[in-house]
Design a protein around this nucleic acid. Structure first.
Lengths: 212, 212, 212, 212
DNA sequence: GATGAATGAGTATTCATTCAT
DNA sequence: TATGAATGAATACTCATTCAT
């Protein structure tokens, strides 16, 4: 079976890189239509390969789906923790993390939708999400503990839900917002405005926390 | 075909109320697994009726799904607008609306999941959502215009996304939060804490808006 | 169950005449799409009545179909024998029969298609056709025996096939001819031309028979 | 998907030739009961293969039906045009074409029924017939133009309908004739008699045309 | 690695028919 | 007479998956 590394663009001469093509097709399709909305035939067709090759390379549909999810998760965690590292005040580092969060989602809207969809389903693979989301949450919790208490209505927990909601929903609601606003919410200027909104919001909240 | 009224619990003598049973089964299942994750067979089985009866009563899968969605939408809009009506300062009314929003979602977590899933999918029926969400959004926009400008990073638009995200995601993430927190986020005390968090947040933000 | 007489337009005051409406709908539909191409639901819908009434009035689909067929058969036989009766030379009577045949088909193209379709199928109800077609054939055979021998290549049998083919196929092929000719083969003038063709043909053949 | 060539009996070693078996089953069944009288299950059963294989090899029911039709059409056209080619007087060539027509139908009675049934139905696929019958008709029209005028009651058009009716109906009516005559109309001697009848008829008509 | 063929269970939907009211 | 509800088998077609080559 194909290993993770092989999924990255095959750089050795003009190899067919079938596994990669399949993976990319699966990625795109699962994000668009979710697990049960995509068939192996769809994936093979989009990848331009034989159906049986999907099984040859990825075992079965579940495993392929899991692989797509996990790659996104680790990229996600990577982006946030990289942003947090480095110098600056706690305030600055928090802003960097939020910006990284916004950037990552903006660059992976498909993932935003995928995860939202997955989280809000009761499909068995929630195990997957937990396995991957848990470390992210624990890490963020530690980060936030420097500005918020562990319990109560202003606790780290509450802020975690609040911030991630504020960031991710902008992207998952994008197609709807486009209709409601009659304007594309994903243009650079719209994204900048959202970023400013989030920054303002965080600043106001941090200041309020400090005042108390 | 079955009318909306008939869907309500049939109170006249021991009638079978098959349509009602089917509707309830469809409601539950669609919310759990989404449109493409549910089969008519699942629905019929859960309702304990013959498969063909689903078609007899609801025409086809799409129509049944639409009926489920639309009933939720109108209940949702109804809950919010009822909360807004009545006396009190703008601040109070806003709090009432947010509370109503939280209450409605708490009582209809299934709906929270359904809508999240639906919004974040590219399944064609987004039209449905738009048709139903648009009035809700327009109405909320009007409400919010009394406390926020029409454009910019602190605009009504931005707050709409922010508030609805803060409210709804708590519920759609509930199953995950339960694992991350090792605690049920839907107990009364947990919900109270969330409500307090949201209230505090709104107050802080409103105050900040007024200061500027 | 409904008797034949009741199928005729119900003349006593504004009665609903459900059986009649069902019959007419069945007639039209079976002729258009054949037995297996029509569903009871189609028939009930076209008749504007409840599905179950079709069974109440006609027992089942087979019986309804048989009723439609038999009414056409007897009308068909009636038309031809009426034409044969009366005075005139054998030649004139033959022409009258052929004209009646052409007229009947022109007025009941639906029937032409139905019978053609039925004859060329191996569906079990061929019994029906035989029961009804047999007397027609026997009678025509007697008529023709005055101008042709009983056996051989110029026998009554051969002429029977030939003449009925010449008459009926013009009508069953009509939709195709319309495309091939780019002209409607069922206008009065087109029908007149066909009639002339058939007359000429019969005259030539009769003359040839007499010469031998 | 299966190509035309593959449908011919697979002569290379004991290959299963599933597509061929399916095709043959479909051919037989469609001819017997028409498009809507045959189900994919029937076909698979008769071919002794898995239902899904029918779709694997032929796409869907329509395509399979079209393939059956088109193979017959081209064989039909091929038989007639081959007969027309070669030397001889116009009279002789016409006789050859008619004989070829009779032969083809005698060898493909199933096709005779299929086409009759198809022509006399209003099933949408009439397009198919027109696409395939049109060239045949145009070609025959050209052939006949040497012995008949373009318009009027003795026109090529009229003779086309007349001749094809005389030839084809003998075969489509065969099962009925067997009952009416109490004799098999498809024995060699019966076919010979029919051929003689048609020959005599053509000769008489041609002579009459020349006399005018 | 890659492919075409194969399979059995599943998909949504329609069928003729029955029956209590 | 008429109807709405009910049913089990059938409809065309797709599914994930396997396997021999």
């Amino acid at each position: 079976m194909t290993t993770d590394r092989q999924l990255l663009k095959n750089k050795s001469k003009g190899k067919p890189d079938t596994a990669g093509k399949i993976y990319q097709a699966a990625d795109a399709l699962f994000c668009e239509a979710g697990y049960s909305g995509v068939s192996i035939r769809d994936i093979a067709q989009r990848a331009g390969v034989n159906k049986a090759l999907v099984f040859y390379h990825f075992g079965n549909k579940d495993e392929l789906f899991a692989k797509v999810l996990e790659r996104y998760y680790s990229a996600h965690i990577g982006a946030l923790s990289t942003a947090y590292e480095g110098e600056g005040s706690q305030n600055q580092r928090l802003h960097r993390v939020l910006d990284a969060y916004l950037d990552f989602m903006a660059q992976n809207i498909r993932y935003a939708r995928l995860i939202q969809r997955q989280v809000s389903s009761s499909e068995a693979d929630r195990v997957l999400i937990e396995r991957n989301l848990k470390p992210l949450f624990d890490w963020l919790q530690d980060v936030l503990l420097e500005v918020a208490p562990r319990t109560g209505p202003r606790s780290v927990r509450q802020f975690y839900v609040t911030f991630s909601a504020i960031v991710i929903n902008y992207f998952t609601y994008a197609p709807i917002l486009e209709v409601l606003w009659d304007e594309d919410p994903l243009t650079q200027s719209a994204l900048d405005e959202r970023r400013e909104h989030v920054h303002w919001l965080v600043d106001v909240l941090l200041e309020a926390m400090n005042r108390e």
